[in-house]
Amino acid sequence: MISKLTKIGAIAVAGALLMTACGEDTNSTKASAAGASGGDIVVGSVNALSGGATFPEASAASKAVFDAFNASGGINGKKINYVITDDKGDPSTASQSARDVVESKKAVAMVGSASLLDCDVNAKYYQQNKILSLQGTGVDPACFSSPAVSPVNVGPFLDTEMTLTYGSEKLGLTDICGFLEIAGSTGPAYKAAIDNWSKKTGKSLKFLDDSVPLGSPDFTPQVIKAKNSGCKAVFINAIEPDAIGLLKAAEAQGLTDVTWLFLTSTYTSEFAKAAGSAGKGVYVPAEFAPFTDPKEAANKDWRALMEKNNIPLTSFAQGGYLAATYFIEVLKGIKGDITRQSVTDALLAMKPIDNPMVGTPYVFGPGDKHGSNTAAWPVQLKDGAWVKASDTWMLQN
Rank of each mutant, 00 (worst) to 15 (best):
T360P: 03
D383W: 03
A385N: 08
P361D: 05
K351D: 14
S390G: 01
D391L: 10
N355Q: 10
V343C: 09
D354C: 06
V330R: 02
K369P: 00
T374F: 00
I338Q: 04
W393E: 04
T339G: 03
D391I: 09
V330L: 04
L348R: 14
A346C: 05
K335R: 13
A385D: 06
T392Q: 13
L348D: 11
M357K: 09
P352T: 00
T344V: 12
D383L: 03
T360N: 05
M357E: 07
A389L: 02
V387W: 04
Q341F: 09
I334L: 11
S342T: 15
I353P: 00
M350F: 01
L331D: 06
A389V: 01
V363I: 12
I353S: 02
D345L: 06
A375T: 05
L381I: 05
K351L: 07
M350L: 03
Q341L: 13
Q341G: 08
Q380E: 14
P378Y: 00
T392E: 13
S342L: 04
W393I: 08
M394F: 11
P378M: 13
L348F: 05
L331S: 06
P366Y: 08
D391W: 08
Y362T: 03
D354P: 01
A385K: 14
D345Q: 14
A376Y: 00
V387T: 15
V343H: 10
D354L: 08
G359R: 08
L348K: 14
S390H: 03
T339P: 10
P361I: 06
T344W: 02
L381W: 01
G336W: 12
D345E: 14
S372P: 11
G367D: 14
L331K: 10
H370T: 01
K335M: 06
S390Y: 01
P366K: 13
D383K: 13
V330K: 03
L331V: 08
T360C: 04
I353M: 10
G336L: 12
T392P: 00
P378K: 07
G359I: 05
H370C: 02
K382R: 15
K351F: 10
S372G: 09
L348T: 13
K382E: 15
G365V: 06
M350Q: 11
W393H: 08
K369W: 11
V363L: 02
D354Y: 11
R340E: 02
D337T: 13
P352D: 00
V330M: 07
T374L: 11
G367C: 12
T392M: 04
G333Y: 03
F364I: 04
A375K: 02
K351I: 07
T360H: 04
I334W: 11
D368R: 13
P366E: 07
L331H: 06
K351S: 15
G371Q: 15
A346I: 02
R340T: 06
V343I: 11
W393Y: 10
T344Y: 04
I353H: 05
W377E: 04
M394L: 15
R340L: 03
V387M: 07
P352C: 01
W377F: 14
Q380V: 11
T339S: 10
W393N: 04
V379A: 08
A375M: 06
D354N: 15
D345P: 07
